[in-house]
Nucleic acid binder design. Structure first.
Lengths: 189, 189, 189, 189
DNA sequence: AATGAATGAGGATTCATTCAT
DNA sequence: GATGAATGAATCCTCATTCAT
């Protein structure tokens, strides 16, 4: 029973199904068929709307990136104090939402994709650029000269904990990271 | 003309070919055929010696893990001062050798494998356990109560920089990490 | 905003789009989607009006056949002398219009179709019958007993030059053919 | 029960199966699966040996071209008189062997392929070049100045009869062609 | 010790076609 | 009159893996 205006609904369902499928498989070996089945449509429809598996993956990446970006923006809203802003960014990055198994698994996928699909690399670079710029902004008042290096380190740390969460099964670790960042900041001040 | 004692030679060649192939592809999409060709043998031989693709990957993982372990042990040899030991571990971890593109790519592969192949997860856990234990050993005299958390953080940091190296193309960053570790240690003291 | 009497307009547009698409692809690998897009309508509409791809192709064939038939009739109009009639037929057959790339490509398509789709074979047979009859009519006064064989030969020659035009890229050759026909006729007389 | 030296046997079987399949289908819609089944092997093997459907088709084309070339060479062997040589070429071209349904069907296929696959076009051009050169050689002593045009005409005639044989179902016509060529030659002399 | 031969299973992708609106 | 939505069926192709030699 075809209806009008299904496109955005299907696209959304497929993107979410792709993320879920990656999460469930715990790996990159997911098929268009599996994703489509999970979304309740035929594989052909997935191609109809996305054109290719890579394109669907890319959209999934964008979806997750957007979610993360929104979380960070929400956390920053109203915060003016550099310290508070920094903590907000870190907290948002380690929010339970970002550590949901399927999200972590999707990230892992994207990391791998980024080595092959140029556009994935571009997206990843954009995300990292924004994170870096956010961190830099918050860190400059706190650790002037070392701000840039520190921002890079914090970024790497976030990625590192993601990776461990993705391969360990433990979702925890956020607290330790915050402590560590605190330590560095305390020292840098 | 078959020769005697070819087995270890072939195994070694195949393991190295697997790592090289992963590095060259910059991705996980490598085939047994490609690996075998690179090693100068038939795909059938790869199976003959390793039984399966997963097993070959596992062996490749062990090879890299062993290399890293040896580098750490070598760096630790003769060092008794906790500070020096800690720095030795970190330095060994960020040695240029560990950042060779194919090594980083292989690591990425293993991370992914670890989500699917139990034995890969076990190997990864062992490596992390050893690293953690090494770090803990060195950190306990330096930051008694926080040693455990710190060890975890440093481990995650190492992984994070690996990941970035694998997805950015930049191999640098080691220096910043050392700085950061220094900072933490200075503060922790 | 649907209009009245759209049917003939759409049918014509689709038939022409089919021919153009075949010409552009330079091959038979054209899709209903491509044809419909070129005609500015949805694939569903093409089916609505033609029922199937084969039927659309058939209509395209008829379109081209009709064009050729009209050209021949126009050329014959007013000609009474057998010689003149023969030359008119041949000239019409090798008119630049019939050698337009998309027309030649469409013919090629029809030849292939004729081996599979019975109705295409029938159409082709009808066209050949008419051509043969026309040639025969003109040739009988010129070469009584051999008229039938000659008509067949000239028909094959026309097809042969079509084929070469379709596969060579050269559209020329018409002149040589006329020469040849002249030669045969001169001799036959 | 794998044996050694199967490659040439399989290649040959597959090429022949491809030609037969095209002939049986009477069309270009043949699948690798169908060809492989006819050759008694798996589709995967066809890919193993030929790499792609196009490549297999190309090999089939070469096979037929080679057969035709050999037939012409055999017919020319020992003939020195221009007249005789010309007739030999034409006879070889219209030999029953070349009019076997599957051969004609394969030719049709190649004509279509030639519009898309560059290498097919090249092969076709080579075949035509050779035919033209052979005809030219024989015609020059017989019809000096018009030899070139005549050679082109005869070539087109051959193709035309092929085409008709492929779409009519009639395999005959060879005799009429010889007559016609005779006529032209008689006149040209 | 080593490999050519061979395949089964699976996966991405395409496309004509249908149908409710 | 026209189309967006949707799919089933088919096809090419890849690859890990097996086995007889």
């Amino acid at each position: 029973m075809p209806k009008l205006g299904m496109e955005p609904i299907r696209r959304d369902a497929l993107v979410k199904a792709a993320i879920a499928e990656i999460g469930a498989a715990g790996s990159l070996d997911v098929t268009m068929g599996g994703i489509a089945r999970r979304a309740g449509v035929s594989p052909a429809l997935a191609h109809h709307y996305f054109g290719s598996k890579d394109a669907l993956f890319l959209s999934a990446m964008r979806h997750i990136l957007a979610g993360y970006g929104a979380a960070v923006r929400a956390a920053l809203r109203g915060q003016t104090d550099p310290q508070a802003r920094l903590r907000a960014i870190v907290r948002a990055s380690f929010d339970a939402d970002q550590f949901r198994p399927e999200v972590v698994a999707a990230w892992l996928n994207f990391y791998v994709q980024a080595r092959t699909v140029p556009q994935a690399a571009r997206l990843l670079a954009i995300y990292r650029g924004r994170l870096h710029s956010n961190l830099l902004h918050a860190l400059r008042p706190l650790a002037a000269s070392r701000a840039d290096a520190l921002a890079g380190t914090v970024g790497a740390l976030i990625d590192g904990f993601y990776l461990r969460a993705g391969t360990d099964g433990r979702t925890g670790g956020a607290d330790e990271v915050l402590d560590m960042v605190d330590t560095v900041l305390a020292r840098a001040r």
